[in-house]
Design a protein around this nucleic acid. Sequence first.
DNA 1: AATAATAGTTATATTTGCCAACTATTTTAT
DNA 2: ATAAAATAGTTGGCAAATATAACTATTATT
Lengths: 169, 169
Amino acid sequence: MSTTTNYAKLSVGTKALILSKLYYSVLSKSLESLDIERYYSILFFLNDNNGCNQQCICNNLAIDKTAMVKVIDYLIKVGFVDRNVNPDDRREHFIVLTKKGLKQTGEIVKAFEDIDREIFSLISKEEQVIFNKVMCQLSSKLKELPANDLFFNYKQTAKKRKKVTASKV
Amino acid sequence: MSTTTNYAKLSVGTKALILSKLYYSVLSKSLESLDIERYYSILFFLNDNNGCNQQCICNNLAIDKTAMVKVIDYLIKVGFVDRNVNPDDRREHFIVLTKKGLKQTGEIVKAFEDIDREIFSLISKEEQVIFNKVMCQLSSKLKELPANDLFFNYKQTAKKRKKVTASKV
DNA sequence: AATAATAGTTATATTTGCCAACTATTTTAT
DNA sequence: ATAAAATAGTTGGCAAATATAACTATTATT
């Protein structure tokens, strides 16, 4: 058997994972010169949503909130963002790009957009529209299905806590 | 600002990563009853490519070969696969599903297929075809671009080794 | 006022990702 | 035929990601 089957039959979840790995591999190559080599998608998101809170980033990028704490700690350490308590709801911390962060994020956004433009260049506008629409539909549909709720920690954390407390007492 | 923007502007790589996270979260929920809670995509792949070598799995699923060693070690430990040296090329190790592995893999394949069927159910055949075609085109295109060659360790390993050896001497 | 919910944090354990270096084997070049 | 290069797989180590439980502080609900 050959080690490179030309296209293996795979689930859409697996194909998406492979696509994202290839994508980020190209992206990190094209951003080698920056003094940060991770968290590009978070900075990309902040570029459009500067000043949102941590939970907002988690919800939109499907990242666990306990992981997000460390990411933001790191981004603060390297001087890319500030973390500001929202005076109107002191539970929330706004994440705001610094001047340095804004500058570097500009390059990151450009790199993302360059790759998207490049890989979509030979695909017709109509097909691009359909592709993006299906992408969104699949994600929406998946959010409706029962899942090991990893990132969207709303109500179930409370439910869990209740149980644990009860069994502990 | 709301913590749930309805659809954030994101790169295709990021959208694909999110889709895969949602997908695997649903998948692992639906396979909770199995006595394995990881490596589903590898077993799915083996179901169609039983007896391939480790590198073949790595190439097709974009997984690093050093990580693959540990995965296969684990799958052997839980009795899902065997690792057999190819008598015609003794560098290669064939990965073969055991009877137990085959049985459980049947359920895994079914779970993957159920999810794919479910989430594509409201999408027209034409759009599904276009979606899958674009998916493949994007991956192919990405493979042509300069990358931090993570998974496709063919020639560059040799080049690197040469350099390292030279500088060490 | 009590209870629940939300946003974020800490601690911990496990798993993964990535790299350099290595063995064994086979292929290619001279 | 021999030397050099390539391939398949392995090992060890470190940094990062992932998952879980328990926690504080604050706000919303009853």
